[in-house]
Amino acid sequence: MTTIRISLLISLFSILGLSAQETETPKPKTNTISQQFEDLLENSNNFQDYKVVKLNSLNKLIANTADSISVFKTQITELQQEITAQQQEINTLNNTLEETKTTLDQTRSEKDSIYFLGIPMSKGGYMGMMWGIVAVLALALVFFIFRFKGSNAHTQEARKKLADLEVEYDDYRKKALEKEQKMGRLLQDERNKAVKSTKK
């Protein structure tokens, strides 16, 4: 008997709550889902520890929630596509940066190096080699200058000796010519004496 009374009371309150909600028909707010939940709870009737909710309002909230979820999914998909595009752009920029760094390193290497006989050399090595060549050539020049001076001294000495020898030869030739002339005169004198003696 008590159970029947409780059931009747519950049914009565439910009918009264539904009729009261139908008479009020508040305008639903087209706000956020959380706001719509708050509105639904505010517009529902209380029964003990329960809330009596209109089925139409609940269905509308479910539909709005589904629409919001669909919109959120679309936004998430668009954001994911945007993130993917940005990641691809970042990768492209990173690749371009790496290529730029490689090109810059090659340019610096080419700038800091000099090709000598087709062999790439650093500027320091090239300068060292060139100064080494200059030093070797300078030493060779000094060596040849000393050799030339020595040879020139020998040549001057040889020329002097040759001049002295020519002077001595001229003296010898003059003396020999004088001696030959003297001998010729003596020979002629002897011939003359022999001719005279034969005539007597």
Rank of each mutant, 00 (worst) to 15 (best):
K179C: 06
E180N: 08
I119Y: 02
N192E: 15
D49S: 13
G17P: 00
Q81G: 11
K193D: 12
S14C: 08
Q81P: 02
S34N: 07
T198H: 10
T30S: 14
L18C: 08
D164S: 01
I76T: 06
A140T: 03
A153R: 11
S14W: 06
T198I: 11
K54A: 06
Y115K: 15
E178L: 12
E78R: 13
N95Q: 15
V53C: 02
Q21L: 10
Y172K: 08
V52A: 06
L117Y: 02
F72V: 06
G132P: 01
T2F: 14
G132F: 07
K149Y: 05
K60A: 03
D170E: 13
D189P: 01
A194V: 07
K123M: 10
Q86R: 11
S70V: 05
K123V: 11
P26H: 14
Q181H: 12
I76A: 05
V71L: 10
A135W: 14
L141Q: 12
V167H: 07
L16N: 00
F146N: 03
T100P: 02
K123D: 00
I90F: 14
T23N: 06
E98T: 15
M121Y: 02
V53E: 00
L61C: 06
A85R: 05
Y50A: 10
R147L: 14
I114P: 01
V195E: 15
F143E: 03
T65L: 09
I6Y: 10
R191F: 04
L79Q: 14
R159I: 00
E157P: 01
L117K: 13
N46T: 08
R159T: 00
T102P: 00
D39M: 01
L12K: 03
F143A: 13
E78P: 01
Y169V: 04
S7T: 10
V53R: 00
G132I: 00
Y50N: 10
V195G: 07
F148A: 05
K101N: 15
L79E: 11
S151C: 03
E38I: 04
L40C: 05
E166Q: 12
M183S: 13
E178S: 12
I10M: 04
S197E: 15
L93C: 07
I145T: 07
A20V: 04
T96V: 10
K101Q: 15
F13I: 03
F148S: 05
I62F: 12
A176C: 06
N56A: 13
F144W: 10
M130Q: 13
T2K: 14
L61D: 06
D189A: 10
S44D: 01
A176R: 13
G17D: 00
N94W: 07
R147Y: 07
N43W: 03
H154D: 09
S122A: 06
F143I: 09
P120A: 08
Y126M: 10
L12N: 04
E98C: 05
Y50T: 09
V142D: 07
G128D: 08
S151P: 00
M127Y: 04
A63C: 05
N91T: 04
V71D: 11
N45L: 08
W131P: 02
E42G: 07
F146K: 06
G132C: 04
V53Q: 01
F146M: 08
E180Q: 14
F143G: 05
Q87C: 03
N43E: 08
T25S: 10
A138Q: 04
R159S: 02
M129F: 13
Y126R: 03
